[in-house]
């Protein structure tokens, strides 16, 4: 469910119609730039009630990274 919502937010924000999997890279595969990533993080924060630190952004490269980060934040 969480993964589906992440993918839905990514597709909507980046206007992407193609397939998105855990391995999909936000920047390499979907063409996101640094501000796209920040906008996505703000959307994730709003949806899941977590805070994504700017210093952690370089480590959030794929959809799987997003999922792992949000789950870790929710668990802490």
């Amino acid at each position: 469910m969480k993964l589906e919502k992440i993918i839905e937010i990514v597709k909507e924000n980046l206007a992407w119609d193609g397939d998105v999997t855990l391995e999909t890279s936000l920047i390499e595969d979907l063409g996101a730039d640094s501000l796209d990533v920040v906008e996505l993080c703000l959307a994730f924060e709003e949806e899941f009630g977590v805070h994504i630190d700017d210093e952690d952004l370089p480590g959030i490269l794929t959809i799987g990274d997003v999922l792992n980060y949000i789950e870790a934040e929710k668990a802490s």
Binding site: S34, L35, V37, V38, E39, L42, D54, L57
Partner: peptide, 11 residues
């Protein structure tokens, strides 16, 4: 300018 931080702040 740190673009990501400033974007987050400004919005």
């Amino acid at each position: 300018m740190k673009g990501s931080q400033v974007f987050r702040f400004a919005t």
